[in-house]
Design a protein around this nucleic acid. Structure first.
Length: 569
RNA sequence: CGGGAUGUAGCUCAGUUUGGUAGAGCGCACGGUUCGGGACCGUGAGGCCGCAGGUUCAAGUCCUGUCAUCCCGACCA
């Protein structure tokens, strides 16, 4: 392809709307344009990158026995009513009506369709296992689309669904996908880490997220430097809390005046003690009840853990009014002692406290010498706190470190959640009807492209890993008006393509500086410059985008050199 | 969903306070000089000033509404 004929609208300035680097560079380098908030048009270069990522995904899915299919984006409400998710999914589900006023939605995921398809076609254990996948657009009406391709409302996703006879089969499928995902991201040139995660609304038990480590990542993860433990903060655990100190004598409950000391830190400082002796009481509202969550004063409530412990669908911090009604006190002075009619969930660490301080359920007052078990009895003791960097790894005890990551893939063991609701069953060897055991496995294709840039760029632009670069090499004649240079560049460009190297020829009548800047911005892994030295001495420059290393080599060896370097990039 | 901000040329942004014939830089077209890291000179094209209503002799500017976009928040008692 000749650059003079390409739709490659590079921009000198950063469009005002772009915040994160991948978004800025995708716009500046002429890869994408916004069509609506969270919805983008992929220009030719982006499409080439996406196709390469999808090809890598296909190869790795197929290698594990995956079969590609294609499912509809527009889906009837009945399907979602049947699974129960029409009402559960909420405003994130794009809903629409056809001309007969029948309800439809734009699929945010495809469990319903695939499960019903398999239900209708699979009868016997002999037809299992199955690994079925497709790559298509997904739609989620995000409450706040942002960061360009990172959190869009329309995005391309690969999703594979596994169907097995039993848990043992699911384990095998899950391992296959774990391996496939590791391969996919490695081949895409990404530094990626699988982490344990919460399964969220999709449901199911075991799940791993594949995180591309990057500062701009939306997710926080904790990982162990000594072993392979790594988890999303939502899921991360640490070693169990120490038990109650047996030497501690319970003292008598005592009310103290703490005017204006609302936070655990303020109260602790005022009472001249460490925040870890405070019982922090947070009032939450779920879809069905009001609960009090207790953590140590130096800890934070992990709302995901709390939500799971309560088996609730929604969870939010109660507003001031609700707190007053439930406890009789304003926020800041709530405590577990004497609380009535609301459930108390305590973190195990709280139960290990003796003579602790808690809110007195009275304005400007706290209670001292609160003794868990004596002064209040929690309805539930569960790990509901956020683990922080520096705490011990639950597997090996080494210190955990914190990092940020972009979630590019997630794999789930669904179990029989969907097969049961949707009636996807098979007959086993004994002729007994069983629900199919399922797993689902997603990769955000468009997000992977953005993540690749987050991890591979510099001040001048993108640095594509060769495996997903839109083109491998750009051939730049220094002067498009110099016929001798152009002829040599043309020939080299043709030879490269004939040799299977994806090359473009920057034949635009631009000054060399412009072409160099654009080449850096677009991020071709290699650049070959054909200048005067080529005409006079038969030498061309081969330059690696990432390292900047430049080799002056004979024109006749250029193709071989490019082919030699490419696999190393 | 709440709060904040912004909508003016393809892009980045002035102009709005104090109403009076629409601006700059970059980009684009043409001519010339240049030509190894985003050149220079000249000429030119390009605007329903987001949209609708209102006030006024007169609105990019003031008022009302509306739409869109971006940011922050929706988290610690």
């Amino acid at each position: 392809m000749r650059v003079s004929q390409m739709l490659l609208p590079t921009l000198r300035e950063v469009p005002a709307e772009a915040e994160v680097v991948s978004h800025q560079l995708l716009l500046r380098a002429g890869f994408i344009r916004k069509t609506a908030s969270g919805i983008y048009t992929y220009l030719p270069l982006a499409q080439r990158v996406l196709k390469k990522i999808m090809q890598i995904i296909r190869e790795e899915m197929d290698r594990q026995g995956g079969q590609e299919m294609l499912m509809p984006i527009i889906q009837p409400a009945e399907l979602w009513l049947e699974s129960g998710r029409w009402h559960v999914y909420g405003p994130e589900l794009f809903r629409l009506k056809d001309r007969h006023h029948r309800d439809f939605c734009l699929a945010p995921t495809h469990e319903e369709v695939i499960t019903v398809t398999v239900r209708n076609e699979v009868r016997s254990y002999k037809q299992l296992p199955l690994l079925l996948y497709h790559i298509t657009n997904k739609y989620r009406d995000e409450r706040r689309p942002r960061f360009g391709l990172m959190r869009g409302r329309e995005f391309i996703m690969k999703d594979l669904y596994s169907f097995d006879q039993d848990e043992a089969g699911l384990d095998i499928s899950y391992r296959k996908m774990h391996e496939a995902y590791t391969n996919v991201f490695r081949r895409c040139g990404l530094t990626c880490r699988p982490v344990e995660a919460d399964s969220g609304a999709i449901g199911g038990s075991t799940t791993h997220e594949f995180m591309v480590l990057a500062e701009s990542g939306e997710a926080a993860i904790l990982y162990c430097t000594a072993c392979d433990y790594a988890a999303n903060v939502e899921k991360a655990i640490t070693l169990p809390a120490a038990g109650l100190d047996p030497g501690m004598q319970p003292l008598e409950l005592q009310e103290v005046s703490t005017p204006g000391k609302k936070s655990a830190e303020e109260a602790a400082a005022f009472l001249q003690m460490e925040p870890c002796h405070i019982i922090k009481t947070m009032i939450y509202k779920t879809d069905q009840e009001i609960v009090a969550a207790l953590v140590r004063g130096d800890r934070d409530v992990n709302e995901v853990k709390l939500l799971n412990a309560l088996n609730a669908i929604n969870l939010e911090l109660a507003d001031e009014e609700t707190v007053r009604q439930a406890t009789g006190a304003p926020t800041g002075y709530v405590g577990p002692v004497g609380l009535k009619n609301i459930r108390i969930v305590a973190d195990p660490e709280v139960m290990a406290l003796a003579n602790a301080v808690a809110g007195a359920n009275k304005q400007d007052a706290h209670l001292m010498n609160v003794h868990p078990g004596r002064d209040f009895k929690p309805d539930m003791v569960e790990d509901i706190r956020i683990v922080k960097a520096g705490e011990p790894c639950p597997k090996c005890g080494a210190r955990l470190q914190e990092a940020r990551g972009i979630e590019v893939g997630q794999i789930f063991k669904l179990g029989t959640k969907y097969s049961k609701v949707l009636g996807a069953t098979f007959l086993d060897e004994n002729g007994k009807e069983q629900p199919i055991v399922m797993g689902c496995y997603g990769i955000g294709v468009t997000r992977t492209m953005a993540a690749a840039i987050e991890q591979n760029h510099d001040q001048d632009g993108i640095i594509w890993p060769a495996s997903i670069a839109p083109y491998h090499v750009v051939v730049i004649p220094v002067s498009a008006k110099d016929e001798a240079q152009m002829n040599l560049a043309e020939t080299l460009y043709r030879e490269l393509n004939q040799a299977g190297v994806e090359a473009v020829l920057d034949d635009r009548p631009e000054r060399p500086g412009v072409k160099f800047k654009d080449a850096d911005l677009v991020g071709y892994p290699l650049r070959v410059v054909v200048g005067n030295k080529a005409v006079q001495e038969g030498l061309v420059e081969v330059r690696r985008r990432r390292s900047g290393q430049t080799d002056l080599i004979p024109l006749s060896e250029a193709v071989a050199k490019v082919r030699e370097i490419l696999p190393t990039l």
